[in-house]
């Protein structure tokens, strides 16, 4: 019981941060949309489709940020056994999976007009798909136990195994692809990015990050409430 005693300080801090993050998300995404859709030029090679970049690339970044959050939280949970770290890890995986899904779907919508196909078994795409599988595996594993403590620890070990394995998968997939496909087909645009495109890209990325933060805080609160509910039910049945 004492273990779940004091995430209150964190929750107070997080709740104070929440409105600011939400406001930042609205402002950044709004200005990113404005610049991205109306005030930035079409690419000289890709035409208007380059605008998909503003929703696609930040999603891919957040997919990675999600796994970093998951892995660091898992490490913290295994080393210090801090219950908050377990909640953060559980909260991070569906959020990371959502951004990974956005990256895959918008990538397919970008690939069809540019490469003439929705999907290629290109190294990048394949390793992002594997990242999605790892998120799904983590979610399935943490929720597969009657005892949430046990699920959290198993999930933490899996997340760390994934850290070791992800670079190996990435490397093998890179290598596998170069055997089969000439890289030239798959090069994106090929031009260095115009500053007029940089600005909306970074505004959108900031907005995505704020969304990530808001979702993470809310999910930690939801999971914490779930824990408290469990404890209350148990203590009520004991009484």
């Amino acid at each position: 019981m004492h273990r779940f005693a004091n995430p209150t300080r964190f929750l107070r801090l997080a709740n104070a941060l929440l409105p600011w993050l939400a406001a930042a998300a609205v402002l950044l995404l709004g200005s990113g949309l404005w610049l991205g859709l109306l005030r930035s030029p079409a690419d000289y090679q890709q035409g208007e489709t380059v605008r998909i970049m503003y929703v696609h690339v930040p999603a891919a970044w957040m997919a990675m940020a999600g796994y970093t959050t998951l892995a660091l939280s898992s490490l913290a949970f295994l080393v210090w056994k801090h219950p908050l770290a377990d909640l953060a890890a559980r909260a991070a995986s569906p959020i990371g999976a959502s951004f990974t899904a956005i990256a895959l779907v918008t990538g397919a919508l970008w690939g069809q007009p540019m490469w003439g196909t929705w999907w290629v078994w290109d190294a990048r795409l394949t390793s992002v798909l594997v990242l999605l599988f790892l998120y799904l595996g983590h979610m399935a594993l943490t929720n597969a136990f009657d005892d949430p403590e046990r699920g959290g620890r198993a999930g933490a070990v899996l997340a760390l195994v994934g850290v070791v394995n992800l670079p190996i998968i990435k490397f093998s997939v890179d290598w596998w692809n170069t055997l089969h496909q000439p890289a030239s087909v798959l090069r994106l645009g090929g031009s260095t990015i115009d500053p007029a495109m940089m600005k909306p890209l970074f505004l959108m990325a900031g907005g995505y990050l704020a969304v990530f933060g808001v979702a993470l805080i809310l999910r930690i609160r939801a999971l914490y409430a779930e824990r408290r509910l469990r404890q209350l039910r148990l203590s009520l049945t004991d009484a």
């Binding site: 995404l29 208007e48 489709t49 605008r51 998909i52 929703v55 696609h56 999603a59 959502s98 899904a101 956005i102 779907v105 918008t106 919508l109 970008w110 069809q112 007009p113 995505y208 969304v211």
Partner: peptide, 13 residues
Amino acid sequence: FIWPSYAVAFGVM
């Protein structure tokens, strides 16, 4: 292609 990708991104978020 462009509008569905914005719809998916903002819809999922």
